[in-house]
Design a binder for these strands. Structure first.
Lengths: 149, 149
DNA sequence: GCTTGACTTGAACCTTTGTTTAAGTCCGAG
DNA sequence: CTCGGACTTAAACAAAGGTTCAAGTCAAGC
């Protein structure tokens, strides 16, 4: 009823893309993946609630530290629709991602030290070298093809 | 002429797979990618020089710290065929990978700190937040779709 | 000589994170 | 009403690092 709805309360995909700096193709992809949602016009075009801008920001920030979309989706799942990430939400996610990063840093440091150390051994032996048998050192990283996180 | 060639001087792909712990399918893949080489028997089967065992070890050790195969291939290119990685080779590669790891650790630490810090800002603003505009902080990471390294 | 297990190939498939393209539709300005 | 730019979809393509499969060959033991 506010006659002051002066500007688009909702965003088209092009507007969201420009404002967030995320290509429209990526936004559609995020929607297919269930990371964000949209209303459709009678003509089947997407209209985004303004809170989506914040959600996209959260997605990109999280991605930038290597969190996979599947995990981001789960975390975003705790937010109601059309609600931007709250401070508490951000706080908790931040703690979570920081822990992730600490883990990864620790793993990389272990590997780096092993590499440095192993110069002295020069072994590359399959039986003894920690680098060649990294599973003992790294712990299980999951199954299937992977790169280091 | 040494009559003492008691055991296989060369390895079949199955033997190499078992000794290295790397699936035969991956070994063939590495060969297609030019990481390792093989002789062929009259019946077109692969026979690997024993030095290949060490090369495969080098590949896996390098991979385990996130070095892509393309880089590993370049580095292995400095080694003559049928020569295992020497101590000097290993030393230099180790320095190189350590530097890589230090870089990555530093980047992750910056991101982690930013995440921690940003809890106080709660902004998720597209204009100001370093997390939301990470390119300034991270430097260029290359082009195209990527995950963090 | 025959059987069996290990080997050969190319091609298709997998995951992740998207981009590109083709063909067609919607909507606002004039 | 018409024009053009922004929008729609599904599907193909990308890169990395492989796995799996089908169909066929090799080699060693009995």
């Amino acid at each position: 009823m506010t006659t002051i709805s002066w500007q688009a309360e909702e965003l088209t995909i092009g507007e969201l893309a420009e404002r967030s700096g995320v290509p429209a193709s990526a936004l559609r992809f995020y929607e297919r993946q269930g990371l964000i949602g949209s209303r459709r016009t009678s003509g089947n075009q997407r209209r985004y609630h303004r809170s989506t801008l914040r959600k996209v920001a959260f997605v990109r920030a999280s991605q930038s530290v290597g969190i996979p979309l599947s995990v981001i989706r789960e975390v975003l799942g705790f937010l109601p629709e059309n609600v931007a990430p709250t401070r508490e939400f951000w706080l908790r996610a931040s703690e979570c991602w920081s822990a992730e990063l600490n883990d990864r840093i620790a793993r990389l440091e272990r590997m780096r030290d092993l590499f440095t150390e192993c110069v002295g051994c020069g072994c590359l032996s399959f039986e003894q070298c920690g680098l060649v048998n990294p599973q003992d050192v790294l712990g299980e990283q999951g199954s299937g093809p992977r790169r280091l996180q």
